[in-house]
Write a protein that binds this DNA or RNA. Sequence first.
DNA 1: CGGCCCTTTGACAGGATTCAAAACCCGTGG
DNA 2: CCACGGGTTTTGAATCCTGTCAAAGGGCCG
Lengths: 250, 250
Amino acid sequence: MNKLHNMTAPVHLSQLKTACSSCSLQELCLPFGLSDAELEQLDNLVQRAQPKLRGEYLYRAGASFQSLYAIRTGFFKTQVMHEDGREQVTGFHMMGEIIGMDAISTDHHTCDAIALEDSEVCEIPFGRLEQLSRDIPSLQRHLHKIMSREIVRDHGIMLLLGSMKAEERLATFLLNLSQRFASRGYSPNGFHLRMTREEIGSFLGLKLETVSRAFSKFQKEGIISVQNKSIEIKDITALKLTMGQQECRT
Amino acid sequence: MNKLHNMTAPVHLSQLKTACSSCSLQELCLPFGLSDAELEQLDNLVQRAQPKLRGEYLYRAGASFQSLYAIRTGFFKTQVMHEDGREQVTGFHMMGEIIGMDAISTDHHTCDAIALEDSEVCEIPFGRLEQLSRDIPSLQRHLHKIMSREIVRDHGIMLLLGSMKAEERLATFLLNLSQRFASRGYSPNGFHLRMTREEIGSFLGLKLETVSRAFSKFQKEGIISVQNKSIEIKDITALKLTMGQQECRT
DNA sequence: CGGCCCTTTGACAGGATTCAAAACCCGTGG
DNA sequence: CCACGGGTTTTGAATCCTGTCAAAGGGCCG
């Protein structure tokens, strides 16, 4: 089991399996032992999809917390900011993922969420979600799993940031993206990066030049093909090898 | 508001405010709008304190998940492990904190928890906690806050690992410890480290030699006094300055 | 008291950052 | 349709921080 593959991923909306017909994502509407009445309640909970244009903030650090957000389409980044101005991208989030859970602790958002492309989100009022999850144990359990998954994901990133070299980080990042695209029915081998080198660098704890160099090196080695933001993975085995490349100390 | 101060901290048991008389921590037994009957239910939920000797595992990655653990006394570290053997300390946990929430997502623990000194923990069967939290909304909200707080903490560590230099990391770490000791009624200026330089290094994404050098440098500058595992903070202002020392780029 | 682990310190190597410049892409507007 | 301009990306060279290797010192426990 590779924890790193969970790195940026999961917290998939399908885990909530909310009857999100207002999101018109059929796959998410699969019941998980819910009665029709319960499904309808879930359905009513989730607000109609809201559009967000590229560059728009979904929420800002400090804003008061009302809702979680399920990403229906598009791509977001979340970032925390240090008082001295440094900022750290804490995640890239795609279709089906739920963001905003950091805000529960203080009733205020602790990070910014910004659309990296034109996107749509479904708002999930948290108070009502809590209320409903009191009546529906399986929903309650799902909510807990989703939050827990976020914790596990963060631990994977800590491992990456704390103990990997630049190329290992980038390889891990690419494989994670690949897997997440694949699980959504897109090609795992070719995809389009929505974020800049600088944003990738911030997420991976590297400078943009280092990210660029690593891309170039992978391409020179024939592991991937890079054309601006388009990535093609040509040798996934080599990429996985790069990811884990580090002599095991006894 | 300094997010970093939450870095390794919180998820304080007092947030759960469980009627943890079996933990005999009076401060934690303060009701938060609970009836006597509810308090008794909480009380029954939490198992009698279990002792753990230094070096003992509280749980291991892969073990099936049953319970969260509230640390009654002592000190634990949690660590995740990469398949190639690399490991990363994800946190140091002290009295009053709750650990094990990463396991909810998969019903299996995803990290090891190891006692760094002789300790006592209270086991909280998670299924029953969920059950009870369905009946007691304020308990439910508390549980969510505690999990969310863990997420926020992890984001702070990601910021540290992703954008701070060695000395900034160590300064942040020391200030975090200081604050956590203070909030428990201990001196914020002098305390005893329970972990080795290597464990600090793993947590901070540094090698043990780098940690040692940073300690030495702080001591030479008169910011702290180090004597093995005993730390005395002599100039907390300078320490805070060190933490935030990085030119703001426009 | 001895052995083991932890810690400190030095010298050196290496990887990542920094600074700089040029090329490139893309959206905008002429 | 093409030219322009700003942001993004690439690449090079030099620097700096951290890691690596090594050795010695120190503390703790049996």
